[in-house]
Design a protein around this nucleic acid. Structure first.
Lengths: 216, 216
DNA sequence: ATTCGTTTGATACGAACGTTTGAATTGTCA
DNA sequence: TGACAATTCAAACGTTCGTATCAAACGAAT
């Protein structure tokens, strides 16, 4: 039924659309810009996806979601090496999965920009990001952290801990250039590794502190 | 020279433009939408500000920047109550200045959305945000934290600590609805206070941990 | 080779965009 | 009051946007 070239066109459009949406945001990208980058006709978007909004959603469904799944798998595989992972292992696995995981630098940048884009200006894709990825990830993160910690941490504390970790993961990606700018040009080598190390250490202490001391 | 109504119009445009830019982003807001909300003529934007891009910049220069200054003042005043503030005081003052400070809830949401907007999709206003506000704030934050801590924390560690704190401050504002959604409807009262408390505690432990243990 | 469903292509539509214009209106000061 | 600059207004500009149309090109099966 399906021939080869239409799939190629469809895939090319998805690729270029994702790159451009991640780079400039939905409204700053025109269909002509996408089809120009994909070297196909203007009408191809409306033929394959109906309209611009649905192309945007398909980018999340067919590009972003599978990648989010890869990140999740990378995270799960890392912590499943030990039967009862320590909090250290959990946080380190999460940080590495997001900041140094299965994605290339470019893919990772796109991936997290699409997340933050929906966080800043929610559209229809927001529900997909939250319900299909964010909430499950947060749930397993909390569960994994719980098994590695005493039970005297209440649910809200655990949730806020998980949010704090995610905050740093997202932010360190988002403003990676800014961080590099502030740190100066002196130490560019293996910055990513040191960022991960800092994030893990900072988070672990934050969690442990939240566990030990009940109130400030 | 200047009469009254033009200033009124100019100010109304700035107010409505800021609200709309913060809510929907630059490209998703049209001049007609702004002038409609400000109840003035379409051409008023081009008369008072030249063009849309410059209106956007003026929003940052004349609305955002003064508010950033108020937040900074609130932060500085809080920590200047004691001659040598503790790290606890510094972080708590910062968190309160941003999350519970001199701004109303609405003004704070706008303020931080304009920050994150420039972080996600930098325009000309990015330099203003970074150089005039972000870098000075980060500098004084690091300096204040340093005086409250032993000197065996290297510069990079201190910078990353400050970034981590800012990450949580920004993120807790950005995804406040999401956090409320995940936490459930059970505990809505004084959530902001508990968020600040969590942020302070998490950060302080993160900093202290970075101070005590040199490597993971 | 012919047919038929699928995909591509060139082109055009109406709407909305940012911007400009020039005439009316307003406020200010001689 | 009259003159003059500052501001507002309605209307239009040219451009670009998302979308629709329809014929041409293509691939696969009869």
């Amino acid at each position: 039924m399906k021939n080869h070239r239409n799939e190629h066109t469809r895939e090319r459009i998805l690729d270029e659309a994702e790159a451009l949406f991640a780079l400039k945001g939905y409204h700053a990208v025109s269909i002509r810009e996408i089809t120009g980058a994909a070297r196909c006709n203007l009408a191809a978007v409306n033929y394959h996806f109906g309209n611009k909004q649905n192309l945007y959603l398909e980018v999340y469904r067919q590009r972003w979601l599978p990648r989010a799944e890869r990140v999740r798998q990378s995270f799960q595989n890392s912590i499943k090496t030990t039967p009862v992972p320590s909090a250290d292992t959990v946080v380190h696995s999460l940080a590495r999965a997001f900041l140094d995981g299965p994605l290339s630098n470019e893919a990772r940048r796109r991936h997290l920009r699409l997340i933050v884009g929906e966080l800043c200006q929610p559209t229809e894709a927001f529900e997909l990001v939250v319900e299909r990825v964010f909430r499950p990830l947060l749930g397993s993160l909390i569960a994994d952290l719980r098994t590695a910690m005493p039970v005297d941490v209440d649910e809200e504390q655990a949730i806020l801990n998980a949010f704090s970790i995610m905050a740093m993961v997202l932010y360190f990606n988002l403003s990676h250039p800014l961080i590099k700018s502030v740190l100066g040009t002196s130490s560019d080598n293996d910055l990513k590794t040191r960022l991960v190390d800092h994030l893990v250490e900072f988070s672990l202490n934050g969690i442990a502190g939240g566990n030990r001391g009940s109130d400030k």
